[in-house]
Write a protein that binds this DNA or RNA. Structure first.
Lengths: 223, 223
DNA sequence: GGATGTGAACGACTTCACAGCG
DNA sequence: CGCTGTGAAGTCGTTCACATCC
């Protein structure tokens, strides 16, 4: 039997930031909330969010508690307030200037995808090493030579980079990005980049995702 | 002070399958190992793998132990054996027939990406709802109408699907995929799909990845 | 009543540390 | 000696359960 008594424990709770896993879910909450906002919904409960994401309501409350205590018992959360609080916690309540290196099909897909702009990410420059591509205009931006990477990043004040170059060029390009002052790289090249810890890294390896899928299907087939 | 209590019994169930997180790392090990294989390296130690991935050697040994005890103390692992064992554990030591729905830029990028074929994934059909695209040939495959989805999936024996359709169409298409017998979906649409648990799901939401990157950069800036 | 926020239990994952073997 | 494999300890993240509040 669990027994809970004596609520008073003033301090020791160190957790005041969303955990890494929690942050990923906050992005999902944001998706739902923005949908409801468009539909004119004013308040939601943790149970509703949980239901539409297929997770537990306790999980939602725990995650949300990291961004502040803005729920009303018996009612739920104000949609607009929660959106605001999550965007602030994730650091996307401002513009993030980003550059894109490697103008292939993947890059074009990303450029066309409107979700970025909506969340405050603005791609301000494109680079490629292929002379045939340099000078071309893609989605309203002119492709620049890699040579100008450092200059333009500093001039434009870009902080993030999206890497969609072939695996072989990823490491050297990443190092140049670091030197140019880039703070975070979204890496699509199927390589493990080694960079100083001051450059944050998020990897999206499409092949690995497919392997995970195969693994899960296999697991599910024979337990 | 550790307040660890006598854990009595960890419980009978000894872990004999890679954990979910472990499986993701196995894919990474595979990348390294395949590189070394090409360079003619015959044996590697857990420390070498760990070093090139920036993780701990204990982590590598633990993960690898799930796929079998094939290391030699004082020596390390035979590269070829380890590759074989990991591929078997992940379920990619065979062909997985896959279909792709939504032939846009992202799809073209995926089709051109050779990494899939190398790992045993073979895309056997393309579908799109746009009449202008139906009949076109893309990377050696003819784009088919969504109408034939069920038929072709069953005829070709496809088990996996890659979803690169707009968010609005993702849920209905996913349901049709399920009905056609697809066992796993790699979803690129920025939506939460609700499907029976028998269909495994891996989501790749590019916008969320960027948000994670921004979050991490922000965290790193002001601790 | 209905929902939040939160210690505490629980479970999953990671690191430690060391026996054992080539 | 160097390196593996593995219990045990430690850490992190999730779920439970309940006091609390509208």
């Amino acid at each position: 039997m669990p027994r809970a008594r004596n609520t008073g424990r003033p301090q020791s709770g160190p957790e005041e930031r969303p955990s890494r896993a929690g942050a990923a879910r906050l992005s999902l909450y944001l998706r739902c909330l923005e949908g409801w906002l468009r539909e004119g919904v004013a308040t939601v409960s943790s149970g509703q969010i949980a239901e539409s994401l297929g997770i537990s309501d306790a999980q939602v409350r725990k995650d949300v508690s990291y961004v502040g205590s803005l729920g009303q018992p018996g009612v739920g959360y104000q949609v607009t307030d929660l959106i605001e609080a999550i965007r602030q916690a994730l650091g996307i309540n401002r513009e993030w200037r980003s550059v894109l290196i490697g103008v292939g099909n993947l890059a074009r897909a990303l450029l066309r995808y409107q979700g970025f702009r909506a969340q405050g990410f603005r791609i301000v420059a494109l680079f490629d090493s292929d002379p045939a591509k340099i000078g071309q205009e893609v989605e309203g931006l002119k492709v620049d030579a890699l040579e100008h990477l450092g200059d333009k990043i500093m001039t434009l004040g870009a902080e993030l980079a999206i890497l969609t170059v072939p695996a072989e060029s990823a490491q050297p390009v990443a190092e140049r990005l670091h030197e140019a002052g880039i703070r975070g790289i979204l890496n699509f090249a199927p390589t493990v980049l080694r960079l100083p810890e001051s450059v944050r890294l998020v990897n999206v390896d499409l092949s690995i995702q497919l392997e995970q899928l195969a693994f899960q299907v296999q697991l599910h087939n024979m337990p």
